[in-house]
Amino acid sequence: MDLSSRSNEDLLELVARHRDGEAFEVLYRRYSRAVYGVVRRMLGDHARAEDVAQEAFTSVWRAAAGYRRERGPATGWLFAIARNAAADALRAKPVAELGEAHDPVDTGPLPEEAAESAERAFRVHVAVDSLPEREREVIELAYWEGLSQSEVAERLSLPLGTVKTRTRSALAKLGERMSDERVAG
C-alpha cells in the first residue's frame, strides 16, 4: 500500500491503531527537517539536538493515539511534540552545563519569542517540504541559496519561464498551506 499520498492525520491513526512502521517512515520523511529545525532552534546545541529529535519521533510513535483530529491539524500536534521534547531537554540540562547561549538559569517555560520563532520556522519548513519536488527545488535554490531565477534556470537546466511558473505556483501553495496550518500548543 502506497502511503505517501495519505494525510498526516491518517498516518498518525495507522501508527496508533496498527503500529504501522511504514506510516511512521512517511511521517518521518515529511517532518524530519522541520522537527530537527525546531530542536536546533530551541537548544542551539548540535550534539544534543540529534538525541532530542530522536526522542521527539519516539514520542510520535508512542503517543500517536493521543492525537485528536477535532483539536486541529496533525502539524500542530507534531510541533507541540518537538517543542516539548526540546523544552524538557532544556529543563533537564544541569546548570553547570549551560553554555553562553543559554545563560539564563531558567527551568520554567521557554521564552515566548523562542517558541514563536520555532513555530514560525516549523510552519514554513513543513509547507516547503510538502511541495512537489519540482517546485520545492526552485524555492530552496531561490530563497535559501540566494540564486536569481536565471541562475536557478541554469542550475536545473530549465527554461526561465518554467522556473518562474513553478516559483509562482509554489509561492501560492505555500501561502495557502502556511495560513492553513495553525500550529497549536
Binding site: G21, F24, Y28, S32, A34, Q54, F57, W61, R62, W144
Partner: peptide, 17 residues
Amino acid sequence: APPTPPPALATAARAAA
C-alpha cells in the same frame, strides 16, 4: 533553510520508536 538532520537520525528514531 532548515538544518539537515544527521543521516543517523532516521535509523535511530525508527529503532527507538
